[in-house]
Nucleic acid binder design. Structure first.
Lengths: 193, 193
DNA sequence: TCCACTAGACCGACCGGTCTACTCTCAAGA
DNA sequence: TCTTGAGAGTAGACCGGTCGGTCTAGTGGA
């Protein structure tokens, strides 16, 4: 099949980039693990960088599916929907062994050295905060958030703090920082802007 | 001199590891930049890993100096002291070009792949939160924080959220996330546990 | 005289990437 | 229906360069 090899590589790339990061992931290791010859890799991808960028795209598809599932759940209040998204994400982290967020990992590793990756990852964060912000706006309209709150700022805050908690969770392979952060944020945000 | 070469290498290591991370930093590049022959490097350091760990030690010396200067400033209230530490840190980030925190960077890059680095960096975070926690305890005793607050948990929260903001700041080379996070945290923490 | 330190040639391994040869699949044309 | 040829995809040997690390020789101060 046309897509099978490519898909297999991208799928393996998700797990390998999450654990190893970019520079510690060798093409050869990826190929060996997926029983793929080099020709197939460079038939599908222009370079290692191109590959990693496409893995990020695939990662973002997952993220948006998570956002669809949580923010779209109208049986919850807007604030509950936002929180649900991160609880879903935490569950995904659990399945991965609490290795945190791939965007955070690659962002830290590469943003000092590659404008391409820095811009791409920053724009991914932008996508997420934009969707969270509209959810928080709705929360504000329904009185879950104070009138003088700034939903966009709050959405950025939420995601950034989450990333910090995810790093700490990755360091200790422990979900506790994630939950603590959510508790703190949601009890704080409802009180004041 | 005995220490000069070693110091020069560690000093350069601080800047290079912050920007490039671990795997993208080549020994050769470090040596070329510092006009050091290889023999001198391996005379002072057992390996690249040993070098990086010693750079982390040096980084932590700076951090503790920052903590001394801010938490020890008795002209401020305890909560102001805690905030001051992060404002000092933000100033340091500015001088570096907003590349964020080296511990966060190396933690993300290496903790999936090296238990040594994961443990070391987690313990560095532990040192910082411990000192912050005693400061927050004092704040609590003086009534700056609610009676039912948990200073240790709040200290961890503070540092974790800061790391998230630092990542975002690194991605966009922009200090705004840092300030937003401090404003949010300190206005929230004083209100409730 | 001794030893910390400098100096850099050298090592095997591995890096990302290229190249050529080959194997299929499938559509076009007789 | 059979032949054939184009192109997608497979296969892996091979490339120059760089990696972290070793080794030996030399230097300079105590």
């Amino acid at each position: 099949m046309t897509t099978t090899t490519r898909d297999r590589l991208l799928e393996a790339g998700l797990a390998l980039l999450l654990r190893h990061g970019y520079h510690d992931l060798g093409i050869q290791a990826l190929l060996k693990q997926t029983h793929t010859p080099k020709g197939s890799f460079y038939h599908s991808f222009a370079s290692k960088e191109d590959f990693a960028l496409q893995v990020i795209d695939r990662y973002m598809e997952e993220v948006h599916r998570g956002l669809d599932a949580s923010l779209g759940d109208l049986s919850l209040t807007p604030l509950e929907r936002a929180r649900r998204f991160f609880e879903l994400t935490r569950e995904k982290y659990r399945q991965d062994g609490y290795l945190g967020c791939m965007l955070g990992g690659l962002g830290q590793e590469l943003s000092g050295v590659s404008d391409t990756f820095a811009a791409r990852i920053e724009s991914c964060f932008g996508e997420v905060t934009r969707r969270l912000a509209t959810c928080l706006e709705e929360a504000q309209q329904q009185g879950e958030l104070p009138r003088d709150a700034d939903p966009r700022a709050l959405a950025n805050l939420l995601l950034n703090c989450w990333e910090g908690a995810a790093l700490r969770s990755r360091l200790s392979r422990d979900p506790a920082p994630l939950d603590r952060m959510l508790d703190f944020y949601f009890s704080a945000a409802t009180r004041a802007s």
